[in-house]
């Protein structure tokens, strides 16, 4: 078992774990965490692709590694937007849930 195989299997396991959490957790912030687990699993899969592509005196293929860095940045930006939405939802007095049927709490202020 080379490190790259271990990391690849780890990536697969993380994707599975994240998927499970994404489906099951009702709370959006927990969903977001689960989504981030999937994301890092995907980056690991990309990472072993980079590691396997070691050639020409390099220990990695720089192209996928560059893509991973871009991907991590984009994933973080996505988390930030999601967190902002979740916090705003709780600030306007809405129970933080993805269920569109839940009414606004009577004591909560409206956004407008």
């Amino acid at each position: 078992m080379t490190p790259s195989v271990i990391a690849g299997l780890l990536g697969a396991a993380l994707v599975g774990l994240g998927l499970y959490g994404l489906i099951l957790h009702p709370h959006p912030l927990r969903k977001l965490l689960a989504f981030n687990l999937i994301g890092s699993g995907v980056f690991l899969v990309f990472g072993i692709v980079a590691r396997r592509g070691a050639a020409a005196g390099l220990r990695f293929d720089p192209v996928p590694q560059a893509m991973i860095i871009t991907g991590i940045v984009v994933a973080f930006a996505a988390s930030a937007v999601a967190v902002a939405l979740i916090l705003r939802l709780s600030a306007v007095g809405r129970r933080v849930t993805l269920d569109p049927e839940v009414p606004t709490r009577p004591d909560g202020g409206d956004a407008k």
């Binding site: 306007v92 007095g93 809405r94 606004t104 409206d110 956004a111 407008k112």
Partner: peptide, 8 residues
């Protein structure tokens, strides 16, 4: 427009 249901 910032209404709670649009946020959801």
């Amino acid at each position: 427009d910032g209404r709670p249901e649009t946020l959801v």
